[in-house]
Write a protein that binds this DNA or RNA. Structure first.
Lengths: 188, 188
DNA sequence: GACTAAACTGACAGATCGGTACAGTTTTGC
DNA sequence: GCAAAACTGTACCGATCTGTCAGTTTAGTC
């Protein structure tokens, strides 16, 4: 089983699911738009759900890799990196094809907290919270976990507002709020 | 055309759409669960979309009425009311059947910003931002619009995190962050 | 009790849903 | 050059999708 076609299917499906949603994307549409036959799809994935889970795994990997790298390029010291998260967010909002957070959308369509798709989406958020907590610890926050959770609230809020209202300056607002929080919760 | 049945249809449909999602709820399920015939439904609403729009109108009315009332019960002075928003949020998260924000979910399923469902969902967020801006102005904030936007980011973030991860303490985190912002951005 | 209008039932379109079966073609490794 | 693996297109399954239609029951009013 050569991984080429399989990876290509996941990559292309990601774009389509991200653009059109999960329930709104049928397997026949995937056949048409990816050019991959339905037989092949069902040889690689037993169900549509399995395909979606693979898509979410790729998305998680791509997004976190990009985000971590970008944050570390934009700033050196941990406190500055906490702020740089919102600069990276800003770049994402203004990039072509921005359509909000795929995991928020996935968990909105598969609401049951026992649903594998929901579980995996929540896991993505947990990993990003862990990252922020690590940064907050390195930055010397008195309560790093609490600070990280607060910053993540700003991040999620900015994503939702940017996607819903089209206000791409949401990251800027979030950054200003984050700066205020850092000023109050980091030792001078 | 007695409005009873129509209102009953909207009310019951709201619960089902909120619980199961929009695409995942077919008209046949609505027939089964509401006990109202399909013919009657299509006499009141030309399409499923029209029904969804009516549901969202009711949800907007109910939610904003409840939220405003609760905030005003919980605190008297405008600065305290800005904080009380997060106490109301906390009550909502812990209430039975909490399933996140219906408008975030609606805009996640109907992503095109031209889609009437998306437009109406965004309008709900705009109205709540207006309310927060009014409170921030009354509280004497130097930049009421900016402060209100920041507080709304915390609110949306808390809703998303509570719904996705089941962490119901999200409102508490948001309140702590909000308190920090108020301390910095309101005149002593 | 007759008349009217609303709300009902149930069957039925036509399309699409996720998923399968089958027969034939291309690609791959050796 | 040959066999195995991976692919393709097409036709199909039963279920479900939104929406329609003819015919019947229900309810209120004179």
């Amino acid at each position: 089983m050569r991984p080429n076609k399989r990876d290509e299917l996941i990559r292309k499906s990601l774009e389509i699911f991200y653009r059109d949603g999960f329930h709104a994307t049928g397997m026949d549409k995937l056949v048409k738009e990816t050019g991959i036959s339905k037989t092949s799809m069902y040889k690689h994935f037993r169900t549509k759900e399995d395909l979606i889970l693979a898509v979410l795994r790729l998305r998680d990997e791509n997004f976190r890799n990009w985000f971590y790298r970008r944050v570390e390029e934009l700033a050196e010291a941990p406190p500055a990196r906490l702020l740089a998260m919102f600069d990276a967010l800003d770049e994402w909002f203004r990039s072509d094809g921005f359509r909000g957070c795929m995991f928020i959308k996935a968990s909105a369509e598969y609401q049951d907290r026992g649903d594998p798709i929901h579980v995996q989406s929540a896991e993505h958020k947990r990993l990003l919270l862990d990252y922020a907590t690590r940064l907050a610890t390195e930055a010397g926050a008195t309560e790093p976990a609490s600070l990280a959770r607060q910053l993540m609230l700003l991040k999620e809020g900015a994503i939702v507002i940017a996607a819903m209202t089209g206000n791409l300056d949401a990251a800027e607002d979030a950054k200003r709020a984050a700066a205020t929080l850092l000023l109050a919760q980091l030792p001078a």
